[in-house]
Nucleic acid binder design. Sequence first.
DNA 1: CGGTGTCTTGATTCTCATCAATTACTGTGG
DNA 2: CCACAGTAATTGATGAGAATCAAGACACCG
Lengths: 237, 237
Amino acid sequence: MQANNYGCLTCDNTNCLIKKHIDKEAVQEYLGRKNTFNCNQGQQFILEGAPVNGLYFIYSGAVKVYRQTATKESQIIRFSRNGEIVGHRGFGTNYVYDISAAALSDTILCNFTSDVLIEMLHKAPELMFDFMLFYADQLQKSEANAKRFGQMTVREKVINGLLFIESKFGQKDGYINMILSRRDIADFAGTSADQVIRVISALKKEGLLIAKGKKLGIPDLQIFAEQLQERSYFLEG
Amino acid sequence: MQANNYGCLTCDNTNCLIKKHIDKEAVQEYLGRKNTFNCNQGQQFILEGAPVNGLYFIYSGAVKVYRQTATKESQIIRFSRNGEIVGHRGFGTNYVYDISAAALSDTILCNFTSDVLIEMLHKAPELMFDFMLFYADQLQKSEANAKRFGQMTVREKVINGLLFIESKFGQKDGYINMILSRRDIADFAGTSADQVIRVISALKKEGLLIAKGKKLGIPDLQIFAEQLQERSYFLEG
DNA sequence: CGGTGTCTTGATTCTCATCAATTACTGTGG
DNA sequence: CCACAGTAATTGATGAGAATCAAGACACCG
């Protein structure tokens, strides 16, 4: 990772919490204590079990947040893109990260150490309030998907996963704006790569999904989403 | 529900966030704006889809938080007991609850409306900070269990669920200090009542679990927990 | 052109959800 | 105090779905 400097003032991530409160003097005081990193595609920048060194804001690029088991299975917990926060779960009481994170494409990261961030939050209660709501929101999304996950069929898991990926990265020229391996999709959907391929093949035959090389496209989101029974409803997040 | 008054000053729930900051003047100002309710066993006090009317703190008793599907299946998201918070996910951006909650035993609830709570949080930033950490903590626990859930076997789900219940309510005289129906256990573990019974029967035969009437006991937590593969590790919460 | 890794498909085995039937438990009214 | 009804708990049988294994297709790269 190389250190550079990408200022908050010129940043155009309108969904960034810091950016939202950039006009407050208390926030501006701390901008200089931000660290910025370049992270190449595939590179891991948070390692499960490593000491927490604060939060990361994604300036540009995309990352996956995942956890690995002893048996080398891995589980992708979330995808994140520019403007979003990574590593926030290590915040507060934790001393080591309980997740890993790696870049899906070349990514620029802004880092605040926990100490700096805590100080900043106390100086700017409005920012703190938004952080609280952010966590509450994340919690809601997490719980909404969480348990229900165990009752979905494989087909539903994959459809749910693809819908999520589409909502996160969007489509461009008819194809999802992010190329993921079958394995990543499987790790995200909570099944095996084999099953993902089966379901994708079936969906292609049904005309619900199109593919060009590794790129996947969803021609009709409405119909695609209707494939989910109401019991496994999709939540963006 | 009957309105009564249970004061925060005489409350002995040391894990209550309000109680923790009871010495602050800003907090004390708002104590009078708390509503207190009695809720009988089995009674529902939060209804999915109903307008949010704030947060509940459990003064005494125990509750289940759940969600119902169109097909009348229900999914228990969490158990909570005295000192803990219920309804916090409706906080912030939501206007209707996305969960239901019912009392598992006779329960006394303290309610703050969202308006009052938001005002109080802004007046007492330290309380707000703890709220933020509370949400962060909940998020971590939720995500830790969430996805992995989909990959557990039924046996693991039930064991995981029982371990959770034990950690929440504890054991007394060798038996878990809360009587739950097989259905509740099933709804919590994410499987059917049938399967729960099968697994419980098997565990009893293996000597890992004991039963007296409806009461269940775990003689050796250590050995019991070892039944979980490392891939589905247990997290208290 | 071999080698490596991902992708894809088929076949087999096993688990689990579901249904059905039986037994235990609980409360209610006569 | 008992008979009864309704609910919860338990066990068995069966079919659908999914995990797993294995092998072939394909692309990419030196």
